[in-house]
Amino acid sequence: MADLTVSDVRWQGLSGRMYASRGAGKARAEGEAAPAFVLVHGIGVSHRYLFRLHQLLAETTDTYSIDLPGFGGTPKPGRRLSVGDYADFILAALDQAGVTSCVLVGHSMGTQFAVEAAIRQPDRITELVLMGPVVDPRRRSVTRQALDLTTDCAFFESASSNLIVLTDYLRCGPRWYLTELPVMMAYPLEERIGDVGVPVLVLRGAKDPVASRDWCQVLAARAAAGDFREVPGRGHVVQHTGTTAVARAILDFAGRPGRTLEATA
C-alpha cells in the first residue's frame, strides 16, 4: 500500500488527526480520477479498528482515516460536540487535505457523522457507506446498547478487534465517552437518512447484535438510493474481522468491481 502520512487537523479550536495513503493505489497508477475513500470511526474508538480496511482500499485509490476530536488520543474538547460539529470537522479535514470528491465510510456512530456530512456537502460526497449503523429506535436505551455490545464482544469478535476497541476506550476515557453518548443516543438516523441525496450502502456483519438486519434494511429503504448487504459470520466490527469482504462490497458499490485485493481477513 501507499506510505501512510499523519497530519494534525485543527478547526475552530478543535483538534484531530488525519492518516493518509496517497498516490500509490492502482486507480492512480492506471490514470483514473477515482474519488478518494474517507473512513470515519465511531464513539470511543479511533482509526485503528479501520486500519485493515484502510490498507485494502488504499490499493485502489487515495484513502484517508480521521481521528475525531476527543478520540484516539486527540485533545478533549471543552464542550459537548453535536453530530453536526463532527460532520463539520470532517469536512474541514477534507478541505485541509484537498479532497474534493470522496466515498465517505462511517462505522457505528461514525455513520451519523457521515450522514450529516453528506447532507451538508452532497457535491463532495459521491457515495455513502454506513457500516453497523446506530441507533436502532427499538434499542434506544443505554442499557440495551451496553448489552448488545457486550454480547458482540463476547461471541462475535476476534481477540484483536476486542483489544483495539478496549485500548481505544481507555484512551478516550469515561468522561468524554459519557459526554458524547447522549448525542449518539438522540440522533434520529432513520429520519436524517431521507435527506441524503447520494447513493447509500448499508452494510452489516450478519451476526451483529447492535445493527440488526431489520434496522439496516429500513435505513436502506429510506435512503433515496439505498442498497443493503451483509457479511456472513461477522459481528459489529465487521471492517476488522471481515475486511476483504467489506472492501469488495464497498468497491463494487462504488463502481470499481473486479480489483484484485490481498486478503487480510
Rank of each mutant, 00 (worst) to 15 (best):
G13M: 02
R192L: 04
L181Y: 15
E191D: 07
E32C: 08
A159G: 03
L81Q: 10
E191M: 08
R256T: 09
R139S: 08
L178Y: 14
A118M: 07
R171V: 08
S108F: 08
E157N: 14
A186Q: 12
D123E: 09
L149Y: 14
V142G: 03
Y19N: 01
Q96S: 05
A24N: 11
V200Q: 09
P75R: 12
V231H: 08
V231Y: 08
S161T: 15
G70T: 10
C172V: 13
S101T: 13
A249C: 04
A27H: 14
A223D: 01
A20Q: 04
S15G: 06
Q112M: 14
P174Y: 07
T179K: 00
V99H: 02
G78Q: 11
W215A: 02
W176R: 12
P69T: 13
P232V: 12
P199C: 12
P133T: 13
S101C: 04
Y177D: 03
A93I: 11
A33I: 10
S212L: 01
P209K: 10
S212M: 00
A220T: 05
K76Y: 06
D227Y: 13
A225C: 05
T244M: 08
T126D: 05
A87E: 04
V231T: 14
V246F: 12
P209E: 01
L50D: 06
A118K: 00
A27T: 15
E180G: 01
G132E: 01
A117T: 14
R124G: 05
D95W: 10
L181C: 04
R138W: 00
E230G: 09
G78R: 15
S212D: 00
V45L: 10
H47I: 01
R80K: 10
K207L: 08
G197A: 11
V202T: 06
F37E: 00
E157W: 06
G31L: 06
A117D: 07
A206N: 09
D152F: 12
D3P: 02
G258Q: 07
F37Q: 04
L39Y: 14
R248V: 06
E262S: 07
Q217P: 01
